[in-house]
Simulated assay, not measured.
Amino acid sequence: MSDERSTRIRVEALQPVCGEAVRAWAERLGLPLEGEADFVLQLGSDGLQLTELGPQAPGPVRVDFVEGAVAHRRLYGGGSGQMIAKAVGVQPGVRPIVLDATAGLGRDAFVLASLGCNVTLSERQPIIAALLEDGLERALRDAEVAPIAAQMRLLHGNAIELMRNWQGEPPQVIYLDPMFPHRDKSALVKKEMRLFRPLVGDDLDAPALLEAALVLATHRVVVKRPRKAPVIDGAKPSYALEGKSSRYDIYPKKALKP
């Protein structure tokens, strides 16, 4: 569950020209523009970012599909040979329609979109959803990345409710990456988990998330887990793909064919 109610967040502009847009974000998210805070949502020339305040705070986090780690993975990450691609069923002539129901910062969704999948992203935490929305808008303005971003659609709201009340053609594959206690040693993951855990907490409703996904997906559900973590309570996966630090539990319903 989220500890958001006890986490104080305000919004601020990093440049005067951003003042009007910042006021719009503050009104939309129901956040103050001043006062004491643990975190600050900042808007500047590089987009929207979330920053923790305090002496030991890490740097800001924002969604960037154009540069940095995501760009490097797009260019040099192994393409359709990546484990996530195999997990969702990417193969010659097959690019599944995917719902990433726990989108977070959208990195996995972007990888799948870059491989040619149409991906719907669902994020229930309003501030993380705002970072995602801002990142997607900036990606659409970049000539090289825009075609990939155009294959990504963002939905705000609780994924369980969205799946139970799904409108239109159901996704072939639903991808779940519930929040869990990260033990990844990389500074980037530690920074993001430190920032987001007070907002998101652990996904205690992961069994209900899996149950709803298994009802909606037409072909398979994929759950990303730490390599040694137990499977989510409920239906058991048919098989798993295992990497160094994580694994993908696969719940097949029907074969994906060209």
Score class of each variant (00 low, 15 high):
residue 122 S to R: 03
residue 116 G to R: 08
residue 22 V to C: 12
residue 87 A to L: 00
residue 180 F to T: 07
residue 66 V to T: 13
residue 100 D to F: 11
residue 42 Q to N: 13
residue 60 P to Q: 06
residue 222 V to Y: 01
residue 175 Y to W: 12
residue 37 A to K: 03
residue 205 D to R: 12
residue 247 R to F: 05
residue 150 A to Y: 07
residue 136 L to G: 01
residue 55 P to T: 10
residue 80 S to G: 10
residue 80 S to V: 15
residue 125 Q to C: 05
residue 198 P to I: 01
residue 209 L to K: 01
residue 67 E to M: 10
residue 257 K to M: 13
residue 89 G to A: 08
residue 13 A to F: 04
residue 34 E to C: 09
residue 158 N to G: 05
residue 229 A to S: 15
residue 139 A to R: 13
residue 74 R to V: 06
residue 206 A to Y: 02
residue 18 C to T: 10
residue 154 L to K: 07
residue 96 P to E: 12
residue 99 L to S: 02
residue 241 L to D: 04
residue 157 G to I: 03
residue 50 L to Q: 02
residue 72 H to N: 14
residue 230 P to H: 06
residue 162 L to K: 08
residue 21 A to M: 08
residue 184 D to W: 05
residue 129 A to P: 03
residue 255 A to Y: 05
residue 183 R to V: 13
residue 131 L to V: 06
residue 182 H to T: 13
residue 207 P to F: 03
residue 112 L to E: 00
residue 179 M to Y: 08
residue 76 Y to D: 09
residue 175 Y to A: 11
residue 169 E to A: 14
residue 258 P to Y: 06
residue 218 T to Y: 09
residue 30 G to I: 14
residue 150 A to M: 13
residue 124 R to H: 01
residue 216 L to S: 05
residue 32 P to E: 13
residue 145 V to F: 11
residue 84 I to P: 04
residue 15 Q to R: 10
residue 223 V to P: 00
residue 112 L to F: 02
residue 47 G to L: 02
residue 153 R to C: 13
residue 113 A to H: 00
residue 38 D to G: 07
residue 133 E to Q: 15
residue 194 R to W: 07
residue 67 E to Q: 15
residue 205 D to H: 12
residue 47 G to A: 01
residue 241 L to A: 02
residue 108 D to G: 03
residue 150 A to S: 14
residue 116 G to Q: 09
residue 225 R to L: 05
residue 79 G to A: 12
residue 52 E to Q: 13
residue 258 P to G: 15
residue 258 P to C: 10
residue 94 V to P: 10
residue 128 I to D: 01
residue 158 N to S: 04
residue 227 R to K: 11
residue 200 V to P: 00
residue 86 K to T: 13
residue 47 G to F: 02
residue 210 L to H: 02
residue 227 R to W: 06
residue 129 A to Q: 12
residue 187 A to H: 12
